[in-house]
Design a protein around this nucleic acid. Structure first.
Length: 371
DNA sequence: CGGTGCGGGGCGT
DNA sequence: ACGCCCCGCACCG
């Protein structure tokens, strides 16, 4: 069963590469090919200088999705949408969890939200967060280009990401939901409430002073190793996120023997039944609407049972912390290359002036997919 | 609240 | 002119 799933994925990737590096067109061409024999399956983590041709029916392509944190960039060309990579948010203390996982948060796309994000603390060690900018394209961020032409959507990426993969959009959204629920429910620790008050005050005052790191329990939710193994080996483009939100946080339970407040988080694909290759951890969140042969196979609308909104709030209420960890093995490790200075635009690169050496609180982070 | 897309405009090459 | 970026705005979920 799993093997069958892998085969399917391999096929998809083959089809994707056919229109990829070998393609003769460029996104800036006046005329793009319209005699496309086969469209590509949606690629969630496009990297390096690749090109893809998606069906115009492909919902993910329509929405110009990527699991990289890409923001819109104005290229003064309304025909070609350009996006540039925001990099990844890491722990300033470079902490690791017990099992060696690193913190790779998704940079907020919105400028203001990103600034706010950087005032927050590492979910694992409460240290400062640091944004690693993407400089994979000649010192500039990797850029993605989207162009709708006829029945196709042309995609081209320029540059190779020089940083680890951030959490996916879905993961980031889930984390926000958890935080929200936590705040709405009873804040487990008065300090947390306090820091939130301070933070909102600080926001109003537009101060750049750093906030005391008072966030309480450094619990975190992580993705299991086997998840990442699967992810990197057989299906890097099809795990851990989802245009229609198949990956769900189903619950968080206190682990026996774990420190107080330490919980495990359960992840599960939300609509296993109808998906042929949704077996256990192997499923396909970014499933395109049309297969390689162009046959309509999936409507593309979020499955009624798979959008994040279907999460019972009671489950969220079990979750107790905002944190977020991504398995180090799921990422590239080309980061920390000496970056060419990109145009003095590095406001966001400033690191926070805190250097708390308190990556402590080793916890058991346990998490497993259902079914 | 944050993601997304658009477009004006600044700046360096 | 071109490429890159910042910013504000509007729309949407």
């Amino acid at each position: 069963m799993l093997k069958g799933a892998d085969d399917v994925v391999m096929e998809q990737e083959d089809s994707a590469s056919r229109n990829g590096e070998t393609a003769s067109w460029d996104i800036n061409d006046i005329k793009l090919p319209q005699d496309v024999k086969q469209t590509d399956w949606f690629q969630e983590w496009p990297d390096s200088y690749v090109k893809h041709i998606y069906s115009s029916e492909d919902k993910n392509a329509q929405r110009h999705h990527s699991s990289w944190a890409m923001r819109n960039t104005n290229n003064h060309n309304s025909r070609i949408l350009k996006k540039s990579c925001l990099g990844v948010v890491v722990c300033g203390n470079d902490c690791s969890t017990l099992d060696g996982r690193k913190i790779y948060l998704r940079p907020a796309i919105c400028d203001k939200a990103r600034q706010k994000q950087q005032r927050k603390c590492c979910p694992n060690c409460n240290g400062p967060l640091r944004l690693i900018s993407c400089r994979g394209h000649g010192g500039y961020p990797v850029t993605n280009f989207w162009r709708h032409e006829g029945q196709f959507i042309f995609f081209q990426s320029k540059g190779a990401h020089d940083h680890p993969r951030p959490e996916t959009k879905l993961e980031a959204e889930a984390r926000r939901s958890i935080q929200k629920a936590q705040t709405a429910f009873s804040p487990p620790c008065p300090k947390l409430k306090r820091i939130r008050e301070i933070e909102s005050l600080a926001g109003e005052m537009q101060t750049h002073e750093y906030l005391p790191l008072l966030l309480c329990k450094p619990e975190a939710y992580v993705i299991p190793d086997r998840f990442s193994r699967h992810l990197s080996k057989s299906s890097p483009e099809h795990a851990l996120s989802g245009g229609s939100g198949q990956l769900l946080y189903l619950g968080a339970d206190r682990l026996p023997g774990a420190p107080r407040g330490c919980r495990s988080l359960t992840l599960a694909p939300a609509h296993l039944p109808s998906e042929p290759f949704c077996t256990g951890v192997h499923y396909e969140p970014f499933r395109p609407n049309t297969g390689p042969a162009g046959d309509a196979s999936y409507e593309g609308k979020p499955h009624p049972a798979s959008s994040s909104s279907c999460l019972p709030s009671s489950l969220f209420l079990l979750a107790q912390q905002e944190p977020y960890l991504v398995p180090a093995s799921a990422h590239h490790h080309r980061h920390h290359l000496a970056p060419p200075k990109a145009n003095g635009r590095d406001l966001e690169d400033e690191q926070q002036g805190l250097n708390l050496d308190y990556c402590s609180s080793e916890m058991f982070f346990n998490l497993y997919p259902l079914r």
